[in-house]
Simulated assay, not measured.
Amino acid sequence: MTSPVIAARDLTIRIEGREILHKVSMTVQPAEIVTIVGPNGSGKSTFLRALIGAVPLASGRVERAPGLRIGYVPQKLALDSALPITVRRFLSLPRRISDDRVTDAMSRAGVPGLESRQMTDLSGGQFQRVLLARAILERPQLLLLDEATQGLDQPGAAAFYQRIEEVRRDLGCAVVMVSHDLHVVMAASDRVLCLNGHICCEGAPEVVADAPEYRALFGTGTKGTLALYRHQHSHRHDADCEHDNSHGAD
């Protein structure tokens, strides 16, 4: 079995004295797409920030492959509308990036030819794809996305996740996504982790969609809708579900 690109070992996180995550463990294999779902306040974004070292741990540890290159797409990025900055300039911060690398990243992100556009003139979907282009400039081995389709409609979100699959295929990178787009994003995943302050259920999308813990959180209609979007995989993952009703925070 190959070594994971990243592993969380019994992560516990407390913020202002309140426990947000309790003994959360997860490993991510090379080229695997893992989606983290959960209700509001479940600790999803906190967990993703912990993986990149942006949140202190109360206990546990994060293990990264040596020299791991990580690309990160944040939940949102606010730019001052009065600040003139082109897409090309934005991609070159904080250091200059060659034209060839910019062109390649923009093409992979699905927004070729927008380099001269002002960032503030982009549509929501274009803006998110430029953030994706920035995240893949260094050809990451692990791509992290925190609610990257927030504000997009369902067709836009589905197109974005299809692009993520293509990036995974072309770059061979692993992907960890946090999302509320349950039906579409689960269909684009190899494995789903349902988080609610702890891992309440984990496994292949069909298994998680049918798990009582997941259905208690999100309702019973997901499984049928999931079948409309599901693509085929050449491998399978085992599921390990256990029940708990504790709550955390994003």
Rank of each mutant, 00 (worst) to 15 (best):
Met1Phe: 11
Met1Ala: 13
Thr2Tyr: 06
Ser3Gly: 05
Val5Cys: 13
Val5Phe: 05
Ala7Arg: 15
Ala8His: 09
Asp10Gln: 15
Glu16Asp: 14
Gly17Val: 04
Gly17Lys: 05
Lys23Cys: 12
Val24Pro: 08
Met26Cys: 11
Glu32Asp: 03
Ile33Gly: 01
Ile36Gly: 11
Gly41Leu: 03
Gly43Gln: 09
Ser45Leu: 04
Leu48Arg: 02
Leu48Ile: 14
Ile52Ala: 04
Val55Leu: 05
Pro56Tyr: 04
Leu57Tyr: 12
Ser59Asn: 04
Ser59Met: 01
Glu63Tyr: 06
Leu68Ile: 09
Ile70Asp: 01
Ile70Met: 07
Tyr72Val: 09
Val73Ala: 03
Gln75Leu: 06
Lys76Asn: 12
Leu77Tyr: 15
Ala78Ile: 11
Asp80Cys: 04
Ala82Glu: 13
Ala82Gly: 11
Pro84Thr: 02
Ile85Arg: 14
Arg88Cys: 08
Phe90Asn: 01
Ser92Trp: 11
Ser92Tyr: 09
Leu93Tyr: 15
Pro94Gly: 10
Pro94Cys: 09
Asp99Met: 08
Arg101Met: 06
Val102Gly: 03
Asp104His: 10
Ser107Pro: 00
Ser107Arg: 13
Ala109Val: 01
Ala109Tyr: 08
Pro112Gly: 06
Leu114Pro: 00
Leu114Asp: 00
Glu115His: 05
Thr120Val: 14
Gly125Glu: 01
Leu132Tyr: 02
Arg134Glu: 09
Ala135Val: 01
Ile136Gln: 11
Pro140Gly: 06
Leu142Lys: 01
Leu144Cys: 07
Asp146Met: 06
Gln150Cys: 08
Leu152Glu: 02
Asp153Arg: 06
Gln154Ala: 13
Pro155Tyr: 01
Phe160Asp: 02
Gln162Met: 07
Arg163Tyr: 08
Arg168Phe: 04
Arg169Cys: 05
Gly172Arg: 14
Cys173Gln: 03
Ser179Phe: 10
Leu182Cys: 02
Met186Cys: 05
Asp190Ile: 02
Leu193Pro: 07
Asn196Asp: 13
Glu202Ile: 15
Gly203Cys: 05
Pro205Lys: 07
Glu206Gln: 14
Val208Ile: 06
Tyr214Val: 03
Leu217Cys: 10
Leu226Tyr: 00
Arg230Ile: 07
His235Lys: 04
Ala239Thr: 10
Asn245Ala: 13
Asn245Thr: 08
Gly248Trp: 06
